[in-house]
Nucleic acid binder design. Structure first.
Lengths: 149, 149
DNA sequence: TAATATATTTCAGACCACTTAACAAATAGA
DNA sequence: TCTATTTGTTAAGTGGTCTGAAATATATTA
């Protein structure tokens, strides 16, 4: 097997195992918190990016502004995001995560971290160091590529 | 920063970046194919495991058999899974992926592989080898932990 | 200022995923 | 055999998420 083939196969294997677990975990997380995928994506957008308006959320989700507005309203009712008037343009709203919203999302992230922790508990310290270095490299790559990759 | 702290922080960072990308990609994949999260999970179950019945899918999704039955029916209509009678127990059904279902799912997996490929294109060959070895280790861990982890 | 554009909301209608309850068919066990 | 259990489907109802169209309020521009 060529090096290139092996490389692709390894990525493929990891993608499969990670996706398989991810889907289950996502579903559990969403069910436990009564959230839809669109809602989780909205929380993520607000967690990472600066406050934004209703349209931008809709664009990112690929839905109409009407759908976005309704979706956001449910998150506001749940107390996960705050919807205030944008002082520099009173037509627009300013959406931000509440502390509760931040906590909920971080619990989701944390559950994944714990899964990976579990995965690596039985590794020797030397291998752990290697694995952790590799993940740091990947994280760094992803950060450089930004949202486009 | 202690080694343990650094370890956790690295897992945390990778989890965040991966989840953020995953959610967007999941949504696009599902929208493009008109699939729900539950449906994708069902396809995944059949892709990895042996053929199974309706109840097992429901159990894994955490829904009633009624919900499972309806969900599966839609996948059958879409031509993604095949639902036949289980010859050894005629109460039960035997669910298997169709070729079309397999193809659709593999496209989803492939899109993730491509993302990771993109991430690693700019790495030096030496670093790539390290990263790939680490992912192989993680895949192996996940396989050993199986579905429980 | 008047017309137009932008940001968001509301409403009606559709579809999907879920629930419980009632049902049919096949199997398992006393 | 007769009863209980298991497996799956169907029906009715709830609620979420989407769409398109219409409405409101503010901002921009001619």
């Amino acid at each position: 097997m060529s090096s290139e083939t092996q490389f692709n196969q390894t990525l493929q294997d990891w993608s499969e195992v990670y996706m398989r677990h991810s889907f289950r975990e996502f579903k559990q997380f969403m069910d436990a918190n009564g959230l839809s995928l669109s809602q989780v994506m909205t929380l993520f957008r607000l967690y990472h990016g600066s406050p934004c308006g209703v349209s931008e959320i809709g664009t990112q989700l690929g839905v109409t502004n009407a759908a976005s507005s309704q979706l956001i309203d449910r998150l506001v009712v749940l107390g996960l995001i705050e919807r205030t008037e944008n002082p520099s343009d009173r037509r627009a709203k300013q959406l931000t995560l509440t502390r509760k919203g931040k906590t909920v999302l971080e619990q989701g992230i944390d559950s994944r971290r714990k899964w990976m922790e579990t995965l690596t508990t039985q590794l020797t310290p030397e291998v752990r160091v290697t694995v952790i270095a590799a993940l740091a490299v990947l994280t760094n790559c992803a950060a450089r590529f930004g949202d486009e990759a």
